[in-house]
Write a protein that binds this DNA or RNA. Sequence first.
DNA 1: ATTGAAAGAGTCTCAGT
DNA 2: ACTGAGACTCTTTCAAT
Lengths: 155, 155
Amino acid sequence: MAVKLNLDKLDFQIIQEMMENAEISYADLGKKLFVSGGTIHVRIKKLQELGVVKGTKLSVDLKLLGYDVIAFIGIFLEKSSLYDTVAKELRKIPEIVRLNYTTGNYSMFAEVVCKDIQQLRYILHDELQKIKGIERTETLISLEESFARNVLVIS
Amino acid sequence: MAVKLNLDKLDFQIIQEMMENAEISYADLGKKLFVSGGTIHVRIKKLQELGVVKGTKLSVDLKLLGYDVIAFIGIFLEKSSLYDTVAKELRKIPEIVRLNYTTGNYSMFAEVVCKDIQQLRYILHDELQKIKGIERTETLISLEESFARNVLVIS
DNA sequence: ATTGAAAGAGTCTCAGT
DNA sequence: ACTGAGACTCTTTCAAT
């Protein structure tokens, strides 16, 4: 349940703009949104205090860094009560960048970023097989990312 | 295939640090990595020119903004040649934040961020049903995100 | 709540090493 | 290739509205 935050259109505009580009200066963002740089500063400070804004992250080109393979792994557990212990083991594999506990076809759903198919194979056959509680897995290898973008927070 | 970039340990350390926190000053990051702020500056400029660093993005708390539901949608296509036209239609749905063309169980795999289960139902039953070429879909609703983190680029 | 201006902090350039 | 210092830009604070 979202707490009542009382954000207005300007707050959402700032969030939307900076989700895409957090480097823009307050003065420039103010110009774009027709307020002063000081107002942008006040709003961002408020959003940070509210916990809505958590920080900024560098956006990198993973392919250029040699991470050519993105895959998703659907995980079937022997018992769903094993969730926490399996999650703890999966966290130890650095190539697993995200793990969700899900309803539907799988019990858990993981995203993996790795250098090549050989490394993916190693993770699937050697690392995952060792973890007690995993019944079986299904792998989806991403052949292409059609798009990746931020959610639209402006009505 | 990754082009030969000739990045050294310091480059990777800078990337690793700033993937998590891009707000740190060059002086502070320099202290942490035992070089001058000027050196950090030179390296980041180089990484930007190489295209490895693409920019910085605001990190926000989606739950606080009222986006309580994250789901994954596996999509089966009638014919895999319909990929581009279906992708084009899916891009028009702003709640779909990511779309991958995949091998494995599904033809395409989407991630959705929405306000509540009612909105998810609307997307699944009204918006996706209208798109020609989708045979059927399978939905995984995230009950909990165990973790989400950046890939480890340091050897 | 917004603004503009002053103070403080960070970035960027460059000459020296 | 790294450093430190100066010039420049941006952030932050604050008094006025």
